[in-house]
């Protein structure tokens, strides 16, 4: 890509900014809007900075200076513990745990499980949302209301029966077992997509029907592309949610080949009833675990913005 090319692009981008009617124009409004954004960003970032500072501290020395804004007794130890590079002796010397972590394996497991869940769930939920939003059939709204009740089913009802089912299917300690209960649908995903599908202009669909397109083709070639930004948004949100999920993957996946990252990093939590967590290891683990999804968000986030500029559900 030549320099001129970049320059031209930047100019085009700036021009498009100036043209974008949904951006505010008034200088005063811009000032206060910007100020508000900066405040939000600062409040958002401070606790995260605190996590960084803690993640590079020596756990043994941590509370000698509990208010220090800089890492206490700076060390890469917690990071090494998280990545499974520290020996148990080294870990214990810095107040960590003697258990071991197979970081790369757990990371791959997490990626596999979350991808499996997200792809299937979003696909199946889009199909259901299409049926609920854009198809006409008797009892549609009643069936949708019943599906919506699933949103209210408390976790204590689903946890044990689902666990027993997964066990009886012989899927304990498999990625599939972890994914199974959420692969088909979640009420949230259906509800979310239906809401956007409802906004799609029906005349486009009716025109396609007249052209003789079947429902699957309409869904594939019209509805999905039109709602693509929202579908990707949903996929990202769900992926993050399952990435951070703990109790279910903990119960189902305990083998090395099925242990997810959150579960593997769980060893930094308190080990005795009254004990304190390995603060540094815990924070380092949380930050490292957030990196892949942060990258994912940036990559796909750009896609959202890109497609939004061109399409826009109408």
């Amino acid at each position: 890509m030549s320099l001129i090319d970049v320059k031209a692009r930047r100019a085009a981008k700036q021009a498009s900014r100036a043209d974008d009617p949904s951006l505010a124009k008034s200088k005063v409004a811009k000032f206060f809007g910007g100020l508000a954004l900066i405040i939000v960003i600062l409040i958002t970032l401070f606790p995260i900075y605190w996590m960084f500072r803690t993640a590079f501290s020596n756990n043994r020395a941590m509370f000698a200076e509990p208010l220090s804004l800089l890492p206490v007794d700076f060390t890469f130890g917690p990071l090494q513990r998280v990545l499974g590079l520290a020996t148990p002796e080294e870990a214990m010397a810095e107040g960590g745990s003697g258990a071991s972590i197979n970081f790369a394996q757990y990371m791959l497991n997490s990626i596999a499980a979350c991808t499996l869940i997200t792809v299937f769930q979003v696909t199946f939920s889009s199909m259901a949302a299409y049926a609920f939003a854009l198809l006409n059939w008797k009892g549609r709204d009643k069936v949708f209301a019943i599906f919506l009740i699933a949103l209210m089913v408390p976790g204590i009802f689903t946890l044990l029966p689902n666990f027993i089912l997964v066990k009886d299917l012989g899927l304990l300690n498999t990625i599939l077992g972890i994914a199974l209960p959420t692969m088909f649908m979640t009420p949230f995903a259906i509800f979310f997509l239906r809401q956007f599908f409802l906004g799609i202009n029906r005349s486009i669909i009716e025109a396609a029907v007249i052209d003789g397109a079947n429902q699957w083709r309409i869904f594939r070639t019209i509805v999905v592309p039109l709602a693509w930004p929202q579908i990707i948004t949903l996929a990202i949100l769900q992926f993050i949610q399952y990435w951070n999920d703990y109790l279910w993957p903990f119960l189902v996946g305990q083998s090395e080949s099925s242990k997810l990252l959150t579960v593997g990093l769980g060893i930094f939590k308190s080990q005795t009833p009254q004990g304190n967590p390995d603060w540094a290891g815990l924070m380092a683990g949380a930050l490292v675990a957030a990196v892949p999804i942060f990258i994912l968000m940036l990559v796909f986030g750009r896609k959202i913005v890109g497609s939004i500029q061109s399409s826009g559900v109408k």
Partner: peptide, 14 residues
Amino acid sequence: EQLGWDDYWNKINT
């Protein structure tokens, strides 16, 4: 197998 206190009892009860 070693698990943290809360996880440990969750696992055993389940």
